[in-house]
Amino acid sequence: MATRNVTRYQRPWIIAFITPAMILTVIFTLVPAFTLLSYSLYGWESFKRGDFVGFTNFERLSNFPFRGDFGGAFRNNVIVFVTLFLVQTSVGMILALAIYRLRRGKKLFQAIVFLPVILSLVIVAFMWKLFLDPLFGPISSLALQFNLPWLNQPWLGQPGLALFTLIFIGLWRWVGFPAIVFLAGMNSINEEYIEAARIDGASEMQIFRKIIFPLLAPSFTIVAILTFIGAFEWFELPYVIGGVTGQPGGSTTTMALLFYRLAFGTVDSATVDVGLSSAIGVILFIFVGIGAALGSYYLRKREIQQ
């Protein structure tokens, strides 16, 4: 009864506080999403809308010549997600644990680990592009100076290498984020659990496996979902380093990059194809939306309350 009264009292306030956010969501998310969907159902010439064509643009994506580009871009996004997720999560966890165990200098190391995250991704991309330049970059100079042929590679010029080089750059820049999220999770664990385990003779590894890791589930959910969304919307890094054509040879093309290339065209490689790019946008929106929702639902079910 009391709850009902409180709810009745709170309702206008809840509505008042939620309404602005809802209006912004409608304007900036729902309207563009439905506009995108409507665009994908029409034929276009440049920015001029033509006839209603139903799902023809989606069909075009599954046929030559766009099947290869779209399939390749999707595969690249999957590789980016899987690699980022595995490496970023494990390295982030190790860094967090190392900082968690520190007795002195925690703040300093937190700042150092988090520093690349606050740098603009575009600046990071340019910086690494210069580092890895085979003619003027310090890495190739170093490799030549100390005769290290394994280091003197076309890191951004070999199809098999380029995507993983980009993933490495992405990791370098972003690994501080999961580390800080995990560290926050570790700091929120009740010390008594760990002390009790230690008194019972549990090893450090056992404490990590049986207490810390399970209680990090909420942090893990956040990192996993954000990595999933970020990996499937990967744009800035491949755009700055590989250009709109995803050099070398299209091997760094992602779905967002393909969307951009076809949505706006480029001066020397692509023309505007609003219908096709909107179809990519719709697929990306649905895939990321459903994937994030399912992932979130599944991961939250596994979370343990302290």
Partner: peptide, 11 residues
């Protein structure tokens, strides 16, 4: 240039 496929236009 060596590693030519990674050499940008500006370089």
């Amino acid at each position: 240039p060596s590693n030519a496929t990674a050499v940008s236009y500006d370089a």
